[in-house]
Simulated assay, not measured.
Amino acid sequence: MLTRIDHIGIACFDLDRTVEFYRATYGFEVHHTETNEEQGVREAMLRISGTSDGGASYLQLLEPVREDSPVAKWLAKNGEGVHHIAFGTADVDADAAAVRDKGVRVLYDEPRTGSMGSRITFLHPKDCHGVLTELVTARDPESGTGGHGH
């Protein structure tokens, strides 16, 4: 069962400049950064809020590191802006299967590794009213040290 909005992914041309905007404008600080070679992005997770159960909500800023990456192609077509929304779940496998059974296309046969060791999959935007939707299970939701995908 989906439990919360885990993060909102925002595609940008210049990660450092975009991070500085969110820091200067809203006071959001970077919680985690990494480069995901498989996805072809450099990312920064900005923590917005946390809960007593270790969950949190983030903005995920995404800058492509190569021109053939999905985010680079999306930026070329759409420009900067909201790229996807991610819902947190304790069991990405079960929830992906449940939405697949309802006729929604799941883009990966098996979940992949996302930010900070999380397990992620995506749902086809044409089946979700135009919204690229991610399902994410943190690496270790009990300790609050889990991760989030992109």
Rank of each mutant, 00 (worst) to 15 (best):
I120E: 11
A97Q: 13
Q60W: 00
E34H: 09
R105N: 08
Y108V: 10
M45W: 09
V19I: 15
H84C: 10
F21M: 11
G103I: 07
R47F: 01
Q60G: 08
R42S: 14
L59D: 07
D101C: 02
E63P: 02
A24M: 12
F28R: 07
R47L: 11
H84G: 11
S49C: 09
H83A: 01
K73C: 09
Y108F: 14
L46W: 01
L59K: 04
G55H: 12
T113E: 13
F122K: 00
E43V: 02
V92H: 01
E38L: 11
E110P: 01
V92N: 00
L61F: 00
G55F: 08
S52C: 04
V106L: 03
H31C: 04
G40Y: 07
G50L: 00
A76C: 00
K77L: 12
V71I: 13
K73H: 06
A44Q: 08
K102Q: 15
S57T: 15
G54S: 02
H32C: 00
G103R: 01
E63Q: 12
T89S: 13
V106A: 04
D68M: 08
G55A: 15
Q39E: 14
V19K: 14
D109G: 14
N36W: 12
D95C: 04
I120W: 11
D109L: 05
L62D: 03
E34N: 11
R42F: 07
H31V: 02
A86S: 12
G79L: 09
F28D: 06
Q39R: 15
D16G: 09
A97E: 14
Q60H: 07
G81V: 06
M116F: 08
A97L: 09
R66W: 08
V30A: 07
G55T: 13
F21S: 09
G50D: 06
S57M: 12
M116T: 10
G55Y: 11
D53M: 06
T18P: 00
F28K: 01
F21P: 04
E20P: 00
G54H: 05
R112H: 13
K102F: 08
S52R: 13
A24G: 12
G81T: 06
F21A: 08
E80G: 13
L107Y: 07
N36F: 14
L123G: 02
H31G: 05
G114P: 06
